[in-house]
């Protein structure tokens, strides 16, 4: 096999894997937009907050330690224990549910019936608040994320040797595929299947879809909007936690995690704001598209094409399908 073709195949596979990571972020946006029509600008910050909370609990960090020390003149930083990842995950999910409740109770309940742009602005405010709150609660140091289900089963990182060996035997060039990306793909697959099963086969899931279709009609049959919105924000919080773990394992848990939302925007534009499969397919197209473009065209134009090319690709799709690949086409008759 020609060397360039083997390289291109490797880039293609890595693009697919990167696309899954983008889709993980985009999923959170889709869930909230689908159920409430809110474009949640704070989704990236939620990923940061969730990951910081997870690591903070794992490391036995005292929340708001700097604040406590400044007020009371103490020097407390940790409780002196470590919490196993699984329990830390459960506690973090509880924190994200509490956050969802607080967001609904203190922000969006007061904004029912407002224009979408007002709701969007509220999420911008929420993003800034959460950024500061996360720093205050867990401090702004970069934290190493070691997520282990058991003592010997941690999130793997580095080259997958089996793929490297197989492709070397088959093509004469061993492909690099990161074990973390493979894990993220499996987790994303399970997550999407679970979300689809939840929305199709559970009472709450069906209620969520009813609210997404028509708030008024859902209210008229006795569905609690407040409950559904807390549920949706909780699910988005859980998705944010998963995205935060996968991205945080790469770079450490730090403020920049909140910027992963930028990677989700072209995915949403391409896949549509209301479709879970759209987020996945959109992520894969963006991931593969930007990586192959960088591989072939990047060297000719000085490189660093990925950020802008993702948006160009999304815009090209929008020219032909303004609602995105899987978005709902809304026809308003007058």
């Amino acid at each position: 096999m020609p060397e360039q073709l083997a390289f291109a195949m490797e880039v293609f596979l890595n693009g697919l894997m990167a696309g899954v990571l983008y889709a993980l972020v985009a999923l959170g946006f889709v869930l909230i937009y689908k159920a409430s029509g809110i474009f949640n600008f704070a989704q990236g910050v939620m990923a940061l907050f969730a990951a910081m909370t997870l690591v903070g609990i794992q490391n036995g960090q005292v929340p708001f330690a700097h604040l406590i020390n400044a007020i009371f003149g103490t020097h407390v930083h940790t409780f002196g224990w470590n919490v196993p990842s699984v329990f830390a995950l459960i506690f973090t999910v509880i924190v994200m549910i509490l956050l969802a409740w607080a967001v609904q109770r203190f922000v969006f309940r007061h904004l029912v019936g407002q224009e979408p742009i007002i709701l969007f602005m509220a999420t911008i405010g929420l993003a800034y608040f959460l950024e500061g709150f996360a720093d205050l609660m867990w401090n702004s140091e970069i934290k190493k994320l070691d997520f282990c289900m058991t003592a010997n089963t941690c999130l793997p990182q580095g080259i997958n040797l089996a793929i490297d060996e197989f492709t070397f035997n088959a093509f004469g060039y061993g492909f690099f595929i990161d074990n973390l990306d493979i894990t993220a793909t499996i987790v994303a697959g399970i997550l999407v299947a679970a979300l689809i099963a939840f929305s199709q086969y559970t009472k709450q899931g069906r209620a969520m879809r009813a609210v997404a279709d028509d708030h008024q009609a859902a209210l008229s049959v006795g569905i609690s909007l407040n409950f559904i919105w807390v549920l949706v924000w909780s699910l988005a919080g859980f998705v944010a936690l998963v995205a935060g773990i996968m991205w945080g394992a790469k770079s450490g848990v730090q403020f920049s995690l909140s910027l992963i939302a930028l990677k989700a925007l072209p995915v949403l534009m391409l896949g549509g704001f209301t479709s879970i499969p759209g987020a996945i397919v959109g992520g894969l197209i963006i991931g593969v598209g930007e990586k192959l473009f960088e591989f072939w065209v990047g060297p000719l134009v000085g490189g660093a094409t990925e950020n802008w090319f993702a948006y160009v690709l999304a815009l090209l799709f929008l020219v032909f399908r303004p609602q995105g690949l899987f978005g709902e086409k809304i026809i308003e008759r007058v």
Binding site: F7, E10, V11, N14, A18, F176, D178, W247, K250, S251, S256, L257, L259, I260, K263, K291, E294, F295, G298, G302, G303, A304, E306, N307
Partner: peptide, 21 residues
């Protein structure tokens, strides 16, 4: 050889695949 990384630099797979090649 010059390998630029766009801000913030969270995604660098392309650059490091190129280095590997």
């Amino acid at each position: 050889s010059l390998l630029p990384v766009d801000h913030p630099g969270q995604e660098q797979k392309s650059q490091w695949l190129q280095i590997r090649r």
